[in-house]
Amino acid sequence: SQMADLKSLAKHMFEAYLKNFNMNKTKARAILTGKANIPPFVIHDMETLRLAEENLVSKQAVNGIQNKEAEVRIFQRCQCTSVETVRELTEFAKCIPEFINLDLNDQVTLLKYGVYEAMFAMLASIMNKDGLLVAYGNGFMTREFLKSLRKPFNEIMEPKFEFAMKFNALELDDSDLSLFVAAIILSGDRPGLVNVSQIEQMQETIVQALRLHLHSNHPDAIYLFPKLLQKMADLRQLVTEHAQLVQKIKKTEADTFLHPLLQEIYRDMY
């Protein structure tokens, strides 16, 4: 009966994941492997960037950034996507059993510290070694183009590609990722949590469901579960370095603007 409960929990989290995230690995892989009806528009230099800006993204979202430097425009659009993903992650978190019954300040803390780790784990789904999907899968920005941007903007994505290549080698699917993301959110050691034991218990249940699910979904990958636990630690490091880089950009780049929601998340983070 306990195993049946864990299986139904896995199913529930997978459904919540499909419902709340606009993009997922199945959709992304179809586009990246050329199975989509329309192949994504490739952004590989300043000219193709301009073309994509004119044709792929809504004009409404670009208010005030059209005349800024390419690096700044890309940075601002990354923020739009991040804000949207934080909104999706919040809705997904609310679907985790008992999450909405937690102390509201603890819910905030779990999201504050969890959203970027979850975001970088899911970012791997839309990446391959040559680039990543942008504009809801209608565009593909090359890794080389991102590397060719001026400092410090060229340093933002490369560590995420390096993580993604190792993470993608584990060949997780969306059902695995749904439990992995839930486990990241329910970390009982985030600074300032009040009801630690309650959150630890919830995470334990999700982690058990993940272990059981991996066992049946990847019967031949015997070390997959411990490898994933290691990835949770790697993601913390990735977010710490990302937060430091964003602080640096905020200080040194007068032309950049940090969205209020992201400011809330980064403030006093690490």
Partner: peptide
Amino acid sequence: KEKHKILHRLLQDSTSPVDL
């Protein structure tokens, strides 16, 4: 609470708009 008012709002009201 004031420090994280948008996160609070998102948690309590999913329809609240958050635009860039």
